[in-house]
């Protein structure tokens, strides 16, 4: 059986049928927007990314572009355990490990993230045993002119220079096993 739904449409009154008055009403709406935007361009909600960047509201900034946290001595907290690059569903993290002289023994010689592949799922942050990788830089990745040029040059390719950064007024965290080891040895050395 076919079920039908009857939609009652209101019959047009005389002024609506003439259409001229409705045209003027329509114009009053579009002209209002036109003149407000013409004389106050700052009211246009568009952001000219990448020239112009805005702070993300609330917890949205916990899903912004990646960074690797630093220790108090400036070395990266990452120990090149490959957990993040293993769990990454988009396969966008590339790490090459190397040895250090410090008790931590391992550090990432190359750490690249291809943001054009990244799906912003945050699994790398969950997986990190050292609390090293995080997505709290408050920068939105995207709107770039070239995929493989550097992030600093409006590209989408992150290397160590952009990843290993310290945020403004950030407290150095001492979480993470290897980090605690490093801290303990560091304190003993001091």
């Amino acid at each position: 059986m076919i079920r039908t739904k009857k939609i009652e449409s209101k019959p047009l009154n005389f002024f609506e049928k003439i259409y001229i008055i409705e045209v003027i009403r329509g114009f009053s709406v579009t002209l209002k927007h036109f003149f407000i935007n013409l004389f106050f361009p700052s009211k246009i909600p568009t952001i000219s990314y990448p020239e112009e960047k805005v702070l993300l509201p609330g917890n949205a900034k916990l899903k912004s572009r990646h960074r690797i946290k630093l220790r108090s001595d400036g070395t990266p907290k990452c120990v090149a355990c490959m957990m993040c690059s293993t769990i990454c569903p988009a396969d966008c993290i590339h790490i090459e490990a190397a040895e250090t002289e410090t008790p931590v023994e391992k550090y990432p010689k190359v750490f690249n993230i291809d943001i054009s592949k990244c799906v912003m799922c945050g699994l790398c942050v969950e997986a990190c045993p050292e609390d090293a990788i995080s997505m709290d830089t408050n920068e939105i990745a995207g709107g770039a002119y070239s995929r493989f040029s550097n992030f600093q040059k409006d590209g989408l390719f992150l290397t160590k220079n952009e990843l290993f950064i310290k945020l403004k007024d950030e407290k150095i965290s001492k979480l993470g096993a290897a980090n605690r080891l490093e801290n303990e040895y560091g304190e003993r050395n001091d």
Binding site: T30, L31, H33, F34, N37, L38, P41, I44, P45, T46, S48
Partner: peptide
Amino acid sequence: KISALMQDRIGPN
């Protein structure tokens, strides 16, 4: 440009 301003956009720039 006019259509952009009427629709709260910036338009080609």
